Each structure stands twice: as structure tokens, then as C-alpha cells.
Computed example of a mutant assay.
Amino acid sequence: MSTERLQSLTDLIDTTDATIRAGSVAGARVWPTGFHALDKALSGGLRSGELVLLGGPQGLGKTTFALQLMRNVVAAGRTAVYFSFEHDTHTLLERLISLEAAEHAGLNGVPLHQVRERFEVRHGQSESLADRLAGSPGGPEAVAALRDLGGRLHVHRSSGVHTGLAQIRRVVEAIRDTTGEAPLVLVDYLQKVAVGTDHVGEDEQVAQVAEGLKELALELAVPVAAIVAAEKFALKPGMRMRARHLRGSSALAYEADILLLMADKFDVVARHHLVYDLGNADRFRRWVVVTIEKNRNGVDKVELEFHKRFEQSRFDPEGREVTEQLVEERVFVD
């Protein structure tokens, strides 16, 4: 029997004392997400050793939320790596520029569609990216800020055929060795991670990946966050997503330390909030509800809401607790 991971409680106390005397953090390290209502609910943010899963319907902003979280972590002085199975790197850069422009110019910051237009022009080959964005509110400042953050912000163009758990680990370790800090890990999305075998069912594949990402979080003492896909039946308009609706739900629900589920507020708000004030319908469509479905180390069943700013590829970072009654299915009103 292997004993290489065996440690007596006395040894653990001695090691902890040595860590404290050295001026280091003895407990879990915390990565604030920059979404203030979420950080408050999670007692500061994401923690080392945690597996965090983010689910929700298509088009609701899961990638936007994850990219903004990564940007916030890096802006706070930490390091992060984004494994993108769904989007090419230039698409992610466009989103990050529009998001960062909003940090400098607020709601007047250059919108995403204009950033895309500047990327796609073919003339002016001698121009730089900052040149193309000159005159756009917050554009040049966004490029400069992202250059400053760039050494700590990493994007990996991942492949569902070639990028498996071993490669993810190698990339994370390489970043740690280069920067001196283990990064926050973001995977978009979990069901795309290659498992190297066609002889097991999807549930078993999901279980292998979830277990592997959890092991990575523990061994490298980092938070690992992953976007997760839902079963097809759960993608119909108006259905409020729950843990049981995720592909490979039993493994995901077990392995996750934190499970965040997104919903369009209009789809899940109770009817009586609409029938007495039809103006609420348009207002509710501008908000996304993020439910802390599971939180192994704190409170759960917390329902938060964040204002969509999709024209700038972001959410308003403040957020707040939901005060209206929510339901499980879409409510239609005349």
C-alpha cells in the first residue's frame, strides 16, 4: 500500500505552524471574482482546491461571465488561463477589449460590434490595433490595459480531440513555473475536454473529466472553474435550469464544490410581478439570475441578479440579491 500521501495530524500541525511562521497563508487562498454580490455570498470569492461549475441556457452569457471573471482576477494581480473549446482567440480578444473599454469609459465604452468592425477592416496594414481603435471611447485605453495585464492572462485554443486532462495540467504547470504563481483555471466547456477513449458513455466521460479537474484543483491549490452543458430537453425556452438538467448531472453535482446556474429573469419570475405592471417585463429581460445551487463550504440556494451589458460583452459587476419570487417555468403574459 502506498503511503506517500499519508500524513499524521501532528505532522500536519507542524507543517501549518511552519507555514504561518514563514508569513504565508495556511488556509485556502481566495480569488475574488470581481462580481461583488457573488463575492459577498461566497465569503470573498473562489478558493484554492475548489471545482466551480457554471451552467445555463444557450445565449445567456456564460462565456461572457467567465471571461469577465478571468479579467477581474487578473486585474486584481492574479494569474489566469482560459481553455477555449468553443471560441477562437480573436473572438475572445474582441470581447475583452469591449469589456475593458467599459472599465475606462463606462456605458459610453466602444461596443462589441464596433470592435469587431475594426478587427475586420482590410486596409491600413501599417496600423496597430490601438490605431484602429483610435477615437473610440475607451478603445486605446483598453488595448493598453490588456497589454499590461497580458503577461498574467493566458488563452489556450483548445481542441475537443487533442486537449485532455494531461495537456491542461501541463499548461497550468508551465504557467506556474514561468510566472511563479499557479493560475485560476477556466474551462469552456467541460464536456468538450478530450478523454482519449470512445469505449465509454458520455456520463462516464463527464465523470472522468470532472474528477480530473477536481484533482487538478486540489493538487495545484487553485480554483478550477468550468462551463457545463445541459441536456437538450432542458434547453427549451423558459425552463429554469437545475443540477439535474446538466449533461452527466450525477457526477457534476457530486464533484462540484460550487455550482452556479444562470437563468433569464423574465423566464423565471412569478406571474404576479408581471400582471400588475407590464413594464416589468422589459426590465426583467435585462437581468440574469445566478443561483448558487450548491456551495460545499458556505451558504447555497442564494439567488443573485446581474444587469446584462451584452453590447459591451459584460455584466454590471455589482449585482444584488433577487427580491421577487421565482418559479421553475416561463410565465407568458398577454
Results as ranks from 00 to 15, higher is better:
residue 255 E to P: 04
residue 228 V to S: 03
residue 221 A to H: 13
residue 258 I to R: 00
residue 218 L to S: 11
residue 246 L to T: 08
residue 232 K to Y: 11
residue 277 D to I: 09
residue 270 A to G: 09
residue 243 A to D: 10
residue 242 R to F: 12
residue 238 G to Y: 03
residue 242 R to W: 13
residue 226 A to D: 04
residue 228 V to G: 01
residue 231 E to Y: 15
residue 269 V to T: 09
residue 256 A to N: 06
residue 276 Y to N: 13
residue 248 G to A: 09
residue 217 A to R: 02
residue 262 M to I: 14
residue 240 R to Y: 09
residue 251 A to P: 02
residue 261 L to M: 10
residue 227 I to T: 02
residue 259 L to A: 11
residue 236 K to Y: 03
residue 243 A to C: 11
residue 264 D to Y: 11
residue 235 L to W: 00
residue 239 M to L: 15
residue 243 A to Q: 10
residue 260 L to C: 12
residue 260 L to F: 05
residue 231 E to M: 08
residue 226 A to G: 10
residue 273 H to S: 09
residue 217 A to P: 00
residue 261 L to V: 09
residue 277 D to V: 11
residue 224 V to A: 03
residue 213 L to F: 05
residue 248 G to W: 04
residue 221 A to Q: 14
residue 241 M to I: 15
residue 236 K to C: 03
residue 224 V to E: 02
residue 219 E to T: 12
residue 238 G to K: 03
residue 275 V to L: 13
residue 216 L to Y: 06
residue 216 L to F: 08
residue 227 I to G: 01
residue 241 M to R: 09
residue 253 A to H: 11
residue 233 F to Y: 13
residue 274 L to W: 07
residue 266 F to N: 01
residue 232 K to A: 15
residue 236 K to H: 14
residue 273 H to T: 10
residue 272 H to G: 01
residue 245 H to A: 08
residue 253 A to I: 02
residue 240 R to M: 12
residue 264 D to P: 02
residue 272 H to I: 06
residue 244 R to N: 15
residue 258 I to P: 02
residue 261 L to N: 03
residue 231 E to T: 10
residue 237 P to W: 06
residue 275 V to R: 07
residue 224 V to D: 00
residue 223 P to W: 08
residue 221 A to L: 13
residue 251 A to S: 14
residue 250 S to V: 15
residue 248 G to T: 07
residue 251 A to Q: 05
residue 235 L to E: 10
residue 238 G to E: 05
residue 241 M to T: 15
residue 216 L to D: 04
residue 270 A to V: 14
residue 267 D to I: 03
residue 235 L to T: 15
residue 269 V to A: 04
residue 212 G to L: 03
residue 227 I to H: 00
residue 269 V to E: 01
residue 235 L to F: 05
residue 241 M to N: 08
residue 233 F to V: 10
residue 222 V to C: 07
residue 220 L to F: 12
residue 239 M to Q: 13
residue 230 A to S: 14
residue 233 F to I: 07
residue 244 R to A: 11
residue 215 E to P: 03
residue 230 A to K: 01
residue 242 R to Y: 14
residue 262 M to L: 11
residue 273 H to M: 11
residue 243 A to R: 11
residue 218 L to G: 07
residue 244 R to G: 15
residue 236 K to I: 10
residue 270 A to D: 15
residue 240 R to E: 09
residue 255 E to F: 04
residue 271 R to C: 04
residue 236 K to F: 04
residue 249 S to W: 06
residue 229 A to E: 12
residue 236 K to E: 15
residue 252 L to I: 14
residue 232 K to C: 06
residue 254 Y to C: 00
residue 262 M to F: 12
residue 230 A to C: 13
